[in-house]
Every structure is written in structure tokens, then in C-alpha cells.
Write a protein that binds this DNA or RNA. Sequence first.
DNA 1: GTAGTTGCAAAGTGTTTGCAGGCAG
DNA 2: CTGCCTGCAAACACTTTGCAACTAC
Lengths: 147, 147
Amino acid sequence: MIIDKTPDRADTIKLLRQSDIIPTHQRLVIAHALFARQQHVSAEQLLDMVNQSHTEVSKATVYNTLNLFAEKGLVREVIVDRNRVFYDTRVSAHHHFFDVDSCTLTDIEPRVMHVDYVPPLPEGTIQEGVSIVVRIRRNHAPASAAA
Amino acid sequence: MIIDKTPDRADTIKLLRQSDIIPTHQRLVIAHALFARQQHVSAEQLLDMVNQSHTEVSKATVYNTLNLFAEKGLVREVIVDRNRVFYDTRVSAHHHFFDVDSCTLTDIEPRVMHVDYVPPLPEGTIQEGVSIVVRIRRNHAPASAAA
DNA sequence: GTAGTTGCAAAGTGTTTGCAGGCAG
DNA sequence: CTGCCTGCAAACACTTTGCAACTAC
């Protein structure tokens, strides 16, 4: 049985080392906040999380670190919104609901929805990934015209 | 048999009127360039297309008009790239390849790939749309490390 | 000790907005 | 004529970058 507890500092250091990332203080703080639970966060949300009590990490470092983590495969970029990139701590194949009102992502379990066939790719290209996004919104106004 | 010729000015005026869009000169120029063929363009590309010979439409008007067209259902926004929004002149259900190197979209025909089941939506939400994006890249460096 | 990292603020990019003048109906 | 549209430039939000100081090993 796997206890999904918050990883301690040593776990986080090991995680970063495994990905060839030098574990600096700021990266540990970021990783700790990020991997505490499975989530979808924007850079700015993460910046707020990390600096909740007092400023610990600068904005630039959050951006740089997220890019680094994404490059190393620790998080996955999710591009669904025109205004910001989300980073998904779950890197295995799965898809998303995207609520356009609250601007939040929700996982769709692979058992519930997955891609079982990808059509032949264009000549000379290789696949990087497949993503399905189900765009949803709050059912407030029941049947009004679409403005 | 449908001849898919470039629509003339009268066709375009009719098209806009059908969508409750007042057909101004600039909107006609934009619509003409946009609907001349089926394509995926960014606002900036469209701005260039429209002003190829001489400046005819301002940047703000291109952005405003694209937003208006999207709102009225004449084009569809495709969000796949962190840097720009693409507008797809094909509004019926279909999906895309996205080449991350050239930053270009290619249609996937619905007969080849489509969503035949959407899982139950979160409580109190309704579906806006579903999109599949197959991210691809040029197969240049055969098997190098991911840098 | 050395290379790599951080922080700051400034630059950069795509997009939106406010307002005066212009055009459609 | 009246209201909506256009253009310009400035504002905006998110992200990246340059450089000096600092930290990991």
C-alpha cells in the first residue's frame, strides 16, 4: 500500500537528482509546493503558494524552474488557456476537463477516456503527445442565446 | 456539386449579415482573406495577409474582428501554442496535428479520428467542445538526447 | 574554486482598451 | 443623423532575459 504523504526534503532532493537537476534551496521549495499533491497550477499560482508566508522565491526563478522541470519531464505543460500555461504534476497519459469560467483543469482518468488510435502522422514527423481537452462551463443561464 | 471558389464581395456581405455582423469595409477585407480558403491563421498572419500590398486594416481591428467572428461562430479559436491563438475557418468538428517546430496546424479528418464518447461532466457543467491535439515534430535528429 | 543558479528589473510579445474621428444604415 | 466601427497608441498580462551576487559541490 502506498501512503501518498507529502514528500520530505530528502525525497525531493532525490527526485531532482534523478532528473539531473541540482537541488538548490529555491528548487526544493518549489518542488515541495508543487509535488505536495497532484495538481494543475499556473506559474503565478505557484509563485503565490511558495511565497505565502514570506518571499522565498522570485518570479523569474519560478518561471525558470517550471520550464526546467517541464524539460526534464517532472511536470507537463498544459496549454488550454490563452492567458497562462498550466503545469500538471501528473505526467502519465491522461486528459482534461477545462472549465472556462473558473479557468480550472480537472483530470479525466485514462480508464474513462483515452486515445486508442492515432492516425498516420504527416511525412517526416514523429509524435510528441496527444491531448484531449473537454471544454466545459458552468450551467448558469439554462437556455439563453449565446450572446 | 459545390464549386469552392473564392467568395465574392456579395457572398461575404451575406455571410456576415447572416451572423448579425455589420459588414464594414475592414470586416469584408478580413473575411475575404480569411475565408478565401480553409486555413489556420494567427492574428498576426492575418494582419500581414490583409495588408500585403498596402495598409488597409489596423492591428486592433484584426484582433477585434477575429474575436467577433469567433463569438459569432464564423471561426474557431484553436489554443495549442503558448504564444498565439490560431483561428480555424473550419468550424465543424475535427481535430488537429500541431507541428511544434513549424508551429503549424493540420486538420485530422473526422472520419479518421473523432470522439465518440465523452465521460460524464462534472456536476453543474455543460460541454462547450472537445478537441484532440496530436503534437508532432520534425524527425530531424533521429535519436539524440532531449537536450 | 568553479560552474551553475538566483534575483531584480527591464525587455519582449501577443492581445486588449480608451478615445477621437469616420462610416453604415 | 445616430450608433457602431476604426485606428492609433498606450496599457496589459504573462513570460523571458541580462547581469551581478551567491550557492552547490
